[in-house]
């Protein structure tokens, strides 16, 4: 698999603090790549630089062979962006908003098909402000797909969602990836990364500490002699919760 994204020695300095300290990584075409890290580690900054929303201090970013410095607008055309905090005209219906983004990307879309893809067909006439948290996230993902992007960026897509909505969103991300779209996401939920990501990069204090597949990282830790202090049971509390409340979405 070839690299669809290449980031080399990326640095972002604000007045007094360095948010990103020379990180480098590659994302392979067709994979789901996760950038993991605690709050304030520099995940969002890195993502927003790649999304052309923030200037970098130094370093190089290439997406689909396009240089961020030379062709930011061409990059915007081939990526889909879901922001951690994004807003839409609150009084517009989902169909109207999708038409707006179709105009912004200069493409023609079948809005109902798009909404069907994210399971929001019956909410077509609903206004954005009337949606639940999970629905808003799914709609936000729908807007990232409008221009049939080669890569989509999801910034903490499941933060604040209940377990049902989270699982539903995982299925959606897997579904998007299965159609050939590369996905790069950030999260601070390790179960999410383990379930979704083919490879993860762990970032802390603006530096990448390690990059590998979740499986390799776990094996590596076990090889060093790591043992969980408590015997792991066959199920987790989340499994109990989902068993008791069901997996169907609650936000409709």
């Amino acid at each position: 698999m070839s690299n669809i994204i290449e980031v080399k020695s990326l640095v972002k300095k604000y007045d007094s603090l360095t948010a990103v300290e020379g990180i480098s990584f590659e994302v392979k075409e067709g994979e789901i790549f996760g950038l993991l890290g605690p709050n304030g580690a520099g995940k969002t900054t890195t993502l927003e630089i790649m999304e052309t929303l923030r200037d970098k201090t130094s370093g190089e970013v290439t997406i689909c062979g396009l240089s961020l410095d030379k062709s930011p607008n061409e990059i915007k055309n081939i990526i889909g962006v879901q922001l951690q905090a994004a807003g839409y005209y609150p009084n517009l219906t989902l169909v109207e908003l999708l038409n707006l983004f179709a105009g912004l990307y200069n493409v023609d879309v079948n809005t109902m098909e798009m909404l069907d893809l994210v399971d929001l067909k019956e909410k077509a006439k609903a206004k954005y402000k009337e949606l639940s948290g999970g629905q808003k996230q799914r709609f936000s993902i729908a807007t990232t797909l409008i221009n049939s992007p080669k890569v989509i960026f999801l910034d903490e897509p499941t933060t604040g969602l209940d377990p049902q909505a989270r699982r539903n969103l995982w299925d959606l991300v897997n579904n998007i990836q299965s159609k050939g779209t590369t996905v790069m996401l950030t999260t601070h939920y390790m179960d999410e990364a383990e379930f979704l990501c083919h490879r993860v990069g762990i970032i802390d204090k603006g530096k990448i500490i390690t990059i590998d597949t979740p499986n390799n990282l776990i094996d590596h830790l076990i090889k060093k002699g790591f043992k969980r202090p408590k015997q792991v049971k066959e199920a987790t509390l989340e499994d109990v919760f989902l068993d008791l409340t069901g997996k169907e979405l609650r936000d409709e």
């Binding site: 929303l53 990526i79 962006v81 994004a86 807003g87 839409y88 005209y89 983004f101 200069n106």
Partner: peptide
């Protein structure tokens, strides 16, 4: 952040 989302489009 409506504007910010617009900035991510061309």
């Amino acid at each position: 952040f409506v504007l910010k989302r617009f900035f991510a489009t061309p």
